[in-house]
């Protein structure tokens, strides 16, 4: 008669004994170790969320004094910034306009530059040339911004002064030119990624119908990569508007409204010295008295900057996801 046995090593030289008890017993030490590690990694994993919340909360906390005393509308619409006068003013509008001006100017240069370069790398260049061009773009991205600011100062600014016949070449347009170099690698690499992610069968179909290479790029690749390319522009905007050192060194940092009157209209003046949101924090943040109203006001400027970049990056993010989703569904 054979009885069901829990032991398996009836007649073998093996020492395995598997039992129900063994299968269900849990080693306390091993389990505790694994449990603690899992919790530790959970905490580290969620760190990014906490840091983001901490930054937002902290900007708000430190800025709340100034918002209470000055009012948020004065910050956004006030045209003069005199933090150390006896009657201090905290109007950040000149900085906001300067930031937007300098950034838009940079994109006017960097967008065609970056997108045409991306098209060349992704669609036109032969494979070996492509392999050589990609590192070039990567090297751009590692250039310290302070070095580019230095170049702007000693190379671009004299040229600007000469061409426009100015006494001082440190202007919004000088900053725009050097910022376009800063935004370039972001725009090229994101645009190139989205062009590369256009499925090749889209293109092959068009080639099969006798389209030329340029027609395929224009009618197939670019439309399919549209969201990604717009995202590239948005990310380039976010990169440029948040950039500090190059504009700090190239834009001259005057605190007046960067506008001029032309035929009764108020238009931005690119040939004047400007101070951006980022530059203002860098200039005043290094020697401001902690806890003063001025200190608090700088956090409001930081908040404005944070909100601008947050929105721009969020839109870029949505666009990138949309392109991914659209290409996946097709």
């Amino acid at each position: 008669m054979r009885l069901p046995s829990l032991k398996t090593n009836v007649d073998s030289n093996q020492s395995v004994v598997v039992t129900k008890q063994k299968l269900t017993q849990k080693s306390f030490v091993t389990n505790l170790g694994d449990y603690l590690m899992e919790k530790l990694f959970l905490v580290l994993g969620t760190l990014a969320i906490f840091i983001l919340l901490l930054i937002v909360g902290f900007l708000f906390r430190e800025g709340s004094d100034a918002i209470r005393e000055v009012g948020i509308s004065e910050f956004i619409f006030g045209q003069s910034w005199y933090p150390s006068s006896s009657d201090p003013r905290y109007g950040a509008l000149p900085f906001i306009i300067s930031s937007v001006m300098v950034t838009v100017g940079a994109l006017l240069l960097a967008v065609p530059w970056g997108i045409f370069t991306a098209i060349f790398i992704s669609e036109i260049a032969p494979k070996r040339l492509k392999e050589m061009l990609k590192p070039v773009v990567e090297v751009f991205a590692i250039f310290p911004s302070v070095v580019l600011g230095f170049i702007a100062l000693i190379v671009i600014s004299p040229i600007v002064a000469n061409v426009f016949n100015l006494s001082n070449g440190l202007t919004a347009i000088t900053a725009s030119v050097i910022l376009s170099v800063m935004a370039l690698p972001t725009i090229i690499s994101i645009a190139e990624d989205s062009l590369n992610s256009v499925p090749s069968d889209f293109k092959e179909g068009a080639y099969a119908l006798g389209a030329t290479k340029w027609e395929v790029i224009k009618d197939i690749s670019l439309p399919a990569a549209k969201s990604g390319i717009i995202a590239a522009v948005m990310l380039g905007f976010g990169r440029a508007v948040g950039e500090t050192m190059t504009v700090l060194m190239a834009a001259g940092n005057a605190i007046d409204m960067p506008v001029q009157q032309l035929l009764g209209l108020t238009i931005p003046d690119f040939l004047t010295s400007v101070r951006t949101l980022t530059a203002n924090i860098a200039i005043e943040g290094s020697d401001v008295a902690w806890g003063s109203l001025h200190y608090s006001a700088l956090f409001v400027v930081g908040m404005i900057l944070f909100v601008i970049t947050f929105i721009v990056n969020l839109i870029a993010d949505l666009l990138i996801n949309r392109q991914r989703g659209a290409l996946r569904n097709d």
Binding site: I55, L305, T309
Partner: peptide
């Protein structure tokens, strides 16, 4: 989403945050 957003925060804002905290 947080990681992507953190990578887009301007460096000077980190500076301000570090100064304050």
């Amino acid at each position: 989403l947080s990681i992507r957003n953190l990578s887009g925060v301007p460096s000077i804002v980190y500076g301000l945050f570090g100064l304050g905290l």
